Simulated scan of single mutants.
Amino acid sequence: MHPAPEVTVHYLVTGHTGFKGPWLALLLLSRGHTVSGMALDPEPGSLFERARLAEQLVSDLRVDIRDASATIEAIQAAAPDVVVHLAAQSLVRESYRNPRYTYETNAMGTLNVLEAVAAAPSVRAHVVITTDKVYRNINQEAGYVETDPLGGDDPYSASKAMADLLTQSWVHSFPGCPTAIARGGNVIGGGDVSRERLMPDLVRAYTTGQAPLLRFPRAVRPWQHVLDCLNGYLTIADALLAGSGVDQWNIGPGRDSFVEVGKVATLAADLWGGGAHWDNQPGDHPHEAHLLALDATKAQTELGWRNRLGFRDAVTWTIDWERRVHDGADPLIVTREQIAAFETLDRSSARIGSRYQHLKGTR
């Protein structure tokens, strides 16, 4: 298990009602910290609701980060030690339908959070989460490194690149609270209810006996389990609290996890069983990158962070979570079990699945 902290740290997570947010809150709680959250209302059926997360938080605040004054008031009232800024409009296709909302939330919302953190004397570290899609994508086979140029063709990618550059500018222009940027890849895990995102779309279809339709089955993405990604974010936060880490960091999986969308869907169908399968979706679709990969060597060498789950493990843990909850298991208990199993893992462990099996039934 992860050792108990010498001093309990109070974290504020923006976007804690989304997908990563509840996992992050429960991971922090398992490590002995206290957590507040600031976000919009959760989606129906969200992990936030199913895990009864509101009962476990110091503060559960409903704030739209586009509202600068409300954001400042909320962060000052929560008085956290660390802010992890996850809140975003995070869907590519939604960004085509609602570009203004996407730019306002992802770019100006990030500015509002940066200003709020600067105005909150309690905050000692700030981690701003962007995405692998901030890089100017030229479909190169090598993973992008932190010094590669930023860009973005679709509104989502462009808005997150803007948030990334804005944060870099803020750090250089207004030195104060130690702030770092974390760029994650395609994250999967149990409890995601987002529309037009691969794994929840697959699960929704497989649970109802339908064949999901894939827009770009040959597209390659870096697939990473949510706990590996969040552990990277917290490794960065720990570095900031210790006096280092002010930089940009890729938090992505190894090359064995750069896998075509169709192969992910096939593995998920095989794990689900019952004849599950997928089909191609015909027609024209808005632009999405064909090949996108991160190089996380810098975080590995300078922060000592490592992925603990490979590609197959990440998909297996995700489908296992969804299968068990679909069959009636308590989402909070299953999430806690997977967190406990993750904390026992070393990346070199050979028997990941059996370790997880031994922890089933614990709380």
Rank of each mutant, 00 (worst) to 15 (best):
P282D: 10
N307S: 12
T14Q: 02
A180S: 13
L61Y: 02
G245M: 06
V84H: 04
S36M: 03
P253Q: 05
C229W: 09
L303S: 08
A118V: 01
D60A: 15
P149M: 08
V325W: 00
E73D: 15
P282V: 06
L150S: 09
L26R: 06
G184L: 13
T301I: 14
L359D: 01
N231H: 13
H287N: 04
G232A: 10
P149Q: 07
I251M: 10
P282E: 06
P3Q: 08
R183W: 07
S257E: 02
G185V: 05
A211T: 04
G252Q: 03
N231C: 10
D64C: 05
D228F: 03
F19V: 01
E94Q: 13
D228Q: 06
P222W: 08
S90G: 06
R312G: 03
A182S: 15
I75V: 14
P175Y: 07
R218Y: 05
L214I: 11
A118I: 00
H326T: 15
L29F: 08
F216W: 08
T131W: 05
D148F: 08
K360T: 10
I138H: 07
V246G: 03
D192H: 10
T266D: 14
R31M: 14
V13R: 00
I75R: 01
A182M: 14
L29A: 07
Q300P: 00
L267V: 06
L47K: 11
G32C: 08
L213W: 06
S36A: 14
L291H: 11
T179W: 00
G185L: 02
V315G: 01
V145M: 07
Q89T: 12
D64A: 03
V35L: 11
E104L: 15
F174Q: 13
L359S: 02
H172C: 02
V264Y: 02
S30F: 02
L12M: 07
A125F: 03
L27V: 05
A180D: 05
L202C: 06
S59M: 14
A78E: 07
W272N: 07
R195E: 15
H290V: 09
D346Y: 05
G21D: 08
L309F: 14
S354Q: 14
T8W: 00
F342I: 00
L40A: 12
M199P: 00
W249Q: 05
D164I: 04
T105W: 01
P217Y: 09
T71Y: 01
E55F: 04
W272I: 04
H277E: 09
L26M: 12
G252C: 12
G184K: 03
D164T: 15
S348W: 09
Q76V: 06
R308N: 10
R195Y: 13
H277I: 00
L345G: 05
D330I: 04
G15L: 09
E115Y: 00
G353D: 13
A70P: 00
E337M: 05
I333A: 12
F342E: 01
R355C: 06
A54Q: 13
Q76N: 12
A350V: 14
G176T: 07
S46A: 15
Q224K: 07
N186M: 10
E115R: 09
Y11Q: 03
A276F: 03
S36I: 01
G21P: 08
V82F: 00
